[in-house]
Nucleic acid binder design. Structure first.
Lengths: 224, 224
DNA sequence: GTTGCGACTAAACCTAAGTATGGTCCTCCC
DNA sequence: GGGAGGACCATACTTAGGTTTAGTCGCAAC
């Protein structure tokens, strides 16, 4: 249910399979969780501290993080904040033996997937992990699309970017030309170059790309 | 800070001002909160039960709801679920004297703005209300735009909708014509009609509308 | 100092888009 | 049975979009 693969025999590890990371200073907790996740065919990597987790090279597959709110050095909440500040957006599931409501609120506001109180039912943890992995998969997919678009956009010259902004805002070539003070033919040539570099198959395609890139918040367009 | 208006003298009520709704069976809590919100110039309406709140006609201004988790009949959480099911998306701030973490998690997952434990600091409540009102304002703005677009889209004939889908997907008139089995000139005429009815100022404009309306999940477009 | 590149432009040419005007055919409704 | 409106199409015309070829200018790197 959690992955698409058979649960019972720990099948061959696949580089595409999601990973569950566990951070807890209690070895017995780490073992119990590892066993739980392995029993449903999920790859699991456990750490005794936040520091160790950071040493580990970031996995390039959908993953999530199980975190005890009470960590050796810094609190789970602070670690969550640090990850966010560092641009690491792995979904987090908190566990706690004696947490309180303000902690819970802070964690959830900061985007935590769930906040489980010990002892919790295995199924609750597995459900949370499923949600977290799905969320990460979506996030990664979107990030990938965005990265590709940004890479393409980076190959545009300043002038081409300017033209792309105005064209996707709905201005006609003639209007773009007047706006930036060049001849219409020049705009056409820039435009062709933009379509090629961005690999846009049509103007609507380019408009959608601009939307994803957050370009040109202008409202309207051209009047005839 | 909470509203844009002076706090001290309870100025004239304005139909555009946001409203804070309070539901609590304890009259002293209702009074205390009403006083707090009035002191910063916020319109406040208090109720003793969820039922009374539902009797009240829904306000057409940005608003939020302060809810005790323990309500006379049904719990605050259940009421939250009911509102969601009824399509009422007012942001909710929960208060509780003796809540627990699972309740908190459930409320936050369901979109609650905050979850305050009594006794709370006035400022925490005011901050939560500010956030909630802002969130509702944005939601309302987006809903309004969407409603207008849907109204315009509803005036399109079936054929026009079909053409709009294909055109915003990036097909050329010629390709649209082949796709639906009509002459190119017919597509052009539909297209002009679409631009008029949707009040789109340009093709990019129409593409954005289609995006908001969730039309045409096709990826690409036309090849030359 | 020349090579590469971004920016710009003209001329010529072709395709796509858009707007009348005028008309047919069909269906639903009063 | 006589609209009203949706869908369709042709002819004619105008404007917009886009490519190719060919060339100028300026600047920065080698």
């Amino acid at each position: 249910m959690v992955t698409g693969r058979a649960a019972s025999p720990p099948t061959q590890a696949n580089a595409e399979d999601p990973i569950v990371f566990v951070i807890d200073d209690d070895a017995s907790v780490r073992d119990a969780l590892s066993n739980l996740f392995r029993s449903v065919g999920l790859r699991t990597v456990a750490f005794g501290s936040a520091h160790e987790f950071l040493q580990h090279k970031p996995a390039d597959v959908p993953s999530c993080l199980i975190l005890d709110i009470r960590l050796p050095r810094l609190s789970g909440l602070d670690f969550q904040a640090e990850l966010a500040k560092a641009g690491i957006h792995i979904p987090i599931i908190f566990m706690t033996g004696h947490g309180d409501i303000p902690m819970t609120v802070r964690a959830m506001k900061a985007g935590a997937v769930d906040f489980l109180t010990k002892p919790f039912r295995d199924q609750d943890m597995l459900d949370a992990v499923t949600t977290a992995i799905d969320r990460d998969r979506n996030r990664r997919d979107e990030a990938k699309v965005l990265a590709n678009l940004r890479a393409a956009f980076a190959t545009l010259t300043p002038r081409e970017r300017q033209v792309m902004t105005l064209v996707t805002a709905g201005l006609m070539n003639k209007q773009v030309a007047a706006e930036i003070g060049v001849a219409e033919i020049t705009v056409k040539i820039h435009r062709g170059q933009i379509m090629r570099k961005m690999a846009a198959k049509s103007l609507p395609d380019l408009v959608r790309m601009a939307g994803i890139l957050g370009i040109g918040r202008a409202s309207g367009g051209a009047q005839t």
